[in-house]
Design a binder for these strands. Structure first.
Lengths: 253, 253
DNA sequence: ATCTATTCCGTACGCCGTACGATGAAGTTA
DNA sequence: TAACTTCATCGTACGGCGTACGGAATAGAT
């Protein structure tokens, strides 16, 4: 027997689906829409966290019974996929500048902002095959940034992956720092203040000359172990240089 | 009152700690060591998955009662931090080559391999402040790859972060693909075969010229939507170019 | 008025991490 | 040797999770 098509696809692409859903149907009508459920879930995940997003809690937020959520969405994993695609699709994608470097930077910065605004997004995208309209629109837009600059089709995909992956990583580390501060109740500077003596005692016998030197420089510059904004600027500049250099002196595709 | 030092630090740096642990102590002795517990946890997570690693299951694997695990480790989160550090520390770090490009590539490839061998590693590192001996040794080694090539201390940290982050991303997407194939029971090619018609029907009305073209190229080249090995090579070459170009014509630090 | 399709949701099951406290083993002291 | 102290062990239990199941409620079709 052949494999069945993935049921979550129909949910992802539910808009523009000319079901007879609009016409008269039998039975009780649903009081909400899938969009309502997904939007409420996004709201909860934004406000609290992905772990704090429970089916019961979401149902409470929506004013319906716990099991009624399953009338709209097959399960929690599928809900996460829908949330991710919806979050990606909500962002309006700006028009592409003419300058290549600006275009590449825009791809990265846009992804960084999206991931920062929705701290749960990167974790929710762990789910496979989230090929929905939001992700597709975004991908098409990202590809338009690298179209015609001298990359092959495969390289276009890879360039976009590098840029978006890098931006996502920065967002991830920033999100992690914020979550850690919320969880522990102390800022990173406070954590270091409280643990530096103990850490020095524990690492006695081992030597980390480079790490110590670099860590000290970071501490003085940022009052923290890292500065996402600076990392974004430095890494992005290097990656863009690498890509643009590669395309120079090649025929435009 | 001041904040208390993080208790997980003493566990991370438990080796080389000259406690009176070796001398005669009262009460019953522990039948296992923290290393035994962490190693068993790594084994389970490698074999199954991080979700499949439960305290009860781990206890069963070790032949002890469920709650006995808590005599070695405060809780599951702390166990994950110990696992991550132990996995990082287990890998023997090769000596640095002379050539700068080779050094940067080695940093990325090493991290990629580590993350590939331990598919749970990137998820386990979500925990904050995992400053253990394994992570510290690795970081020191990574910094030695960019030492003296013309970067400031801050830039050294950022360059390492970009390289390791990129390698981790590639590993993450590969791990995700493997997990998806295991979970769904079909290869990515089979998934596409089963869903392509449905997807074509659903996306009718929307146009994705670039995504279609690029996706088709990827499909023909890889029989899949992506090839981690090719992504690694392309992205790594671009990033290394970007970093090396940046350092050229600057004074060596 | 009856039938049928569909939504709603209370209950319950099997998981999870882990708090608590009784049990018993090992070393110390009388 | 006997009593005492200390500490690992772990059975039980609690609250929370995702969700399977099936009965009750509702609305269009007949």
């Amino acid at each position: 027997m052949a494999h069945q098509p993935d049921p979550v696809l129909r949910l992802l692409w539910r808009h523009g689906l000319d079901d007879d859903r609009t016409g008269p149907r039998r039975g009780r009508r649903q009081s909400l829409s899938v969009d309502d459920v997904v939007d409420a879930a996004i709201k909860v995940a934004d406000r609290d966290s992905l772990d704090a997003l429970t089916m019961r809690g979401l149902a409470g937020e929506l004013g319906i019974g716990a099991m009624s959520v399953y009338t709209y969405v097959p399960g929690r994993d599928e809900l996460l996929a829908l949330m991710a695609d919806q979050a990606l699709g909500r962002r309006t994608l700006p028009p592409m500048p003419d300058d290549v470097r600006e275009r590449l930077a825009l791809v990265a910065r846009t992804h960084y902002e999206t991931c920062s605004e929705h701290p749960w997004l990167l974790d929710a995208m762990v789910l496979q095959n989230g090929i929905g309209p939001g992700a597709s629109d975004l991908y098409e837009w990202q590809l338009s940034a690298v179209e015609g600059i001298g990359l092959t089709d495969l390289e276009m995909d890879q360039a976009v992956a590098v840029l978006a992956g890098f931006a996502g990583n920065i967002a991830r580390s920033q999100v992690r720092m914020r979550a850690a501060e919320r969880a522990s109740g102390m800022s990173e500077a406070e954590w270091w203040e409280a643990n530096a003596p103990e850490l020095g005692r524990l690492t006695a016998g081992r030597r980390y000359p480079l790490a110590d030197r670099v860590g000290q420089a970071a501490g003085q510059a940022y009052q923290a172990s890292a500065d996402p904004a600076a990392e974004l600027e430095f890494g992005l500049a290097r990656i863009i240089d690498g890509i643009v250099t590669y395309t120079e002196g090649r025929p435009r595709g």
